[in-house]
């Protein structure tokens, strides 16, 4: 999966979790939660979606490392099992 494909999947998942936001407007370094107004419930759903899409069990202590689209894409690239 390329970076672009990962990004598109992430945007699709964010749209599914928070349909009243516009994830496609996110810049690579925007804080996702702050920019879209995503609370801890939405965020947990997002983590569940990442698990289902990429097979990644993100530990809670890693949440702080994946706050932007850029960080998240790199994190998935590093952790996804090819």
């Amino acid at each position: 999966m390329t970076s672009e494909e990962i990004k598109q999947t992430l945007l699709q998942q964010l749209k599914g979790i928070a349909p009243d936001t516009e994830p496609e407007q996110l810049q690579p370094d925007d804080n996702i939660r702050q920019t879209l107004g995503i609370d801890s419930f939405d965020y947990l759903q997002f983590m569940v979606a990442l698990d289902e899409k990429f097979g990644i069990q993100t530990p809670e202590e890693d949440y702080g490392k994946i706050q932007t689209l850029r960080e998240l894409t790199e994190y998935i690239e590093a952790n996804v099992k090819n």
Binding site: S40, F41, L44, M47, V48, L50, D51, Q57, T58, P59, E60
Partner: peptide, 17 residues
């Protein structure tokens, strides 16, 4: 909460609320 969530898959994690 942190200890409990460590042992759980993402789907079953608890939030402070």
């Amino acid at each position: 909460l942190s200890e409990t969530n460590k042992q759980r898959p993402v789907k079953e994690r608890l939030l402070p609320a």
